[in-house]
Amino acid sequence: MEGDIVQMGAYIGAGLACMGMGGAAMGVGNVAGNFLAGALRNPSAAGGQTATLFIGIAFAEALGIFSFLVALLLMFAV
C-alpha cells in the first residue's frame, strides 16, 4: 500500500516533468523561427550563422532532455 502511493507519486511526477518538454519545444521553435526571420531579411548572412543556430537549438533542447531524464528517473529509478 505504501509502495503503491510512492509509485503513484512517481508516475504523477513523471507526467508533470514531461511538461518541461513543452518549454523546450517552444524554445527550439523560437530559436529556429527567429533565425528564419533574420535569414529572410538578410539571406547573405544566414549561411555563416547556421552553426550558431544549431548551438542555440542544442542549448534549448538540452533543458527539455533534462525534464525527460527526470521523468525517466521517476519512472524507473525512484
Partner: peptide, 8 residues
C-alpha cells in the same frame, strides 16, 4: 548537459 543531451 553535453553528455545527457546526446544520450537523452
Amino acid at each position: 548537459s553535453h553528455s545527457i543531451r546526446l544520450a537523452g
